[in-house]
Structures are given as C-alpha cells and as structure tokens.
C-alpha cells in the first residue's frame, strides 16, 4: 500500500500533481505486430532509449491475445504477414468496441497507393512504408501518442479534479470484469460520497465546495494504491476500483482514507476550517454479476452507510449479515 503521509501539507497536493494524464505520458505502452523478427528487433533496439514500453507479437493470433490481456496506447502493424495477413488483425481491431479507439500505424512493404488508401479508409492513423528511417517512425509515433493523450484527457478526465471521469471509469470497469472472467481474483468496488456537501456549498459558496472536491481527490489518490483506479463519479461522488482486493481488505483501505479525511482541513472560510467526512459503500464482484448490478449493489451499500449515520464505510457482506439478523 502506498505510503500514508503524516503531515497535512505533504499529501495535500494541487490537482495537477495527481492528473492521470500526466501519469500515463511517462511510459506509453505500444504493441509491435510484425512477423519479421529482424525488423521487430531493430525497432525495439532503436526505441530502447525512449520511454516507450514496446511489446512484440510475431503473428496475428498472438497479437489478438496480447491486445486482450493488456492496455496499449498504440498499435504498430505490419500488413504483409504470414500465415495470417495483417489486414485480418486490422479488421479485428476496428470491429472491436474497445480496441477500435487505439491509434494504429501501418508498417508496410507496399508502396502501392491503393494499399495506402485502403488502410487510411479503414481507420489507420498513419502509413509508413518499409524500409523506414527510425527518426521518421519515432516522430510519427510520438506525434500520434501526444495527440491521443490530449484527446484522452479531454474525453476521459474531470476538469475540476484531474481525476478520470465516469465514462473512463465505466470503460475500465467493463475491461476489468472481462479480464476477471478469464483470470478470477477478488475485486471490489467502492463508492464514496461526501457527507452534507450541499451544506458546504450553501454555507461557504461553490468555490469552497470546488476546493473540497479537489482536495478530496488528492487525498484519495495519495492514500490509495497505484493499482487502484479512482474516478469522479459525479457531483460529490467518487468511485474506486480495487483489484486483487477482497471486500474486507477494501474496507480496511477505505477506513484508512476516511481516518485521514477526518483529520484534514479541506478549505479555509475566513478563520474557519472546513472539514468533511464521507460515507462509502463497498461491494465485491460476485460471479455472474452484471456491471450495472454491481454498481447498483455498491450504491445501495453506500446509501445504507448514509442511513446508518454517515461518516462510515460499509460492505455488502456487512449489509447482508445485518439483513439476515
């Protein structure tokens, strides 16, 4: 678990410091699909001093498996592969609801204008003819990665807090659930809702309310693990996906965060310290649970945490036990 900072000043950073878009820019992960080992080696060797992480696949089948297992920010795809053509993978990617947004650069030995037009029409972001110069390929890769990050930030980040937004979270939730079907591990979802947030806005005004949301975002990021995905779900509500984590472990983590929150001054209104608490509901992923059911279940636990007096963390198991009596 990430270090819990003892001093308020240390862990109350500005939202820019926890912006997820900054975090991904350092080590973009891309996949290189080419059946020519010499060419793969050359590209990987040339890019070794860059900050890119390059995975390689020597066949269409291998690439499909890797695209499902990992998240890539760019696909470098050779078209003329044996035994299956790169076009097969191209069509597969463009027909997949999740993968079709991943930028794709075609690497091709064909200088034929019809091939270029076909690829661009199918949705390729660029077309590079072999043999290519590394500097040119690198420039094209960097340009596309930078542009897609800008788009991603606009589409998937919450402007106020710098956290991921609901849309991004939902996409990731679906991906994690699919991964969990293949490789089942405990996985928990936590909804976090600030207690009496309306009163803060009404009493101190919206600028103070915004400050509270920003500071809570920082507290969440700083006190959750690197592997936990946190997003602003809407209004004063946040959501956390905790992989490899049981409900009980998630409750321990969220109680730790709540403990921190209770000690923090979230804003100053004149001489008055603005302090908050939150209520959190946690539910683990049960087999056969659909995404909407899981969210609804977590939401119902959070609602119960509110009903039980707020300023607390509750789990689905606790709620079920309470109901059973």
């Amino acid at each position: 678990m990430k270090k819990m900072y003892e001093h308020t000043d240390e862990w109350l950073q500005s939202p820019e410091q926890v912006n997820p878009a900054h975090a991904v820019s350092a080590n973009s992960r891309i996949i290189l699909v080419d059946d020519d080992e010499d060419l793969r080696q050359l590209i990987i060797h040339k890019f070794k001093h860059s900050q890119l992480i390059i995975d390689q696949a020597g066949s269409v089948q291998k690439a499909k498996e890797m695209l499902y297992e990992n998240h890539y920010e760019l696909i470098l795809l050779d078209l003329m592969m044996e035994p299956e053509s790169g076009y097969k993978l191209f069509e597969f990617v463009k027909n997949d609801p999740k993968l079709k947004w991943v930028p794709l650069i075609v690497l091709s030995g064909s200088d034929d204008i019809d091939d270029k037009v076909r690829c661009l029409s199918m949705g390729a972001d660029d077309y590079v003819t072999k043999p290519f110069h590394y500097k040119e390929l690198n420039a094209r890769v960097q340009r596309i990665l930078a542009r897609s990050k800008q788009f991603e930030q606009m589409a998937f980040c919450d402007a106020l807090t710098g956290l991921y937004n609901r849309r991004y979270f939902y996409n990731q939730l679906v991906i994690e659930m699919e991964r969990n079907q293949r490789y089942p591990v405990p996985i928990s979802l936590a909804l976090v809702d600030i207690d009496y947030f309306k009163q803060i806005n009404d009493t101190y005004g919206h600028p103070v309310g915004d400050q509270v949301l920003q500071r809570l975002s920082c507290v969440l990021k700083q006190n959750l693990r690197q592997s936990d995905l946190v997003a602003r779900y809407g209004g004063e509500e946040f959501v956390v996906l905790l992989t490899n984590t049981t409900e009980e472990q998630a409750a321990t983590i969220m109680n730790g965060v709540l403990e921190k929150v209770r000690k923090v001054c979230f804003a100053k209104a004149g001489t008055e310290d603005v302090r908050i608490t939150f209520s959190s509901g946690i539910a683990h992923l049960s087999p056969d649970l659909k995404v909407q059911e899981w969210i609804k279940r977590t939401d119902s636990v959070m609602y119960q945490a509110k009903e039980y007096g707020r300023n607390r963390v509750m789990t689905w198991n606790e709620l079920a036990s309470a109901i059973r009596g």
């Binding site: 020519d36 060419l39 050359l42 044996e82 030995g109 072999k130 590394y134």
Partner: peptide, 14 residues
C-alpha cells in the same frame, strides 16, 4: 518471395 520481401523491409533499417 517472402524472404525477398523481408530483406527489402529490414535491410535499409539496419
């Protein structure tokens, strides 16, 4: 043909 194609694609890169 495949060997020629492959050499065409990688030679100048090296």
């Amino acid at each position: 043909r495949v060997i020629g194609h492959s050499a065409k694609g990688s030679g100048a890169g090296y």
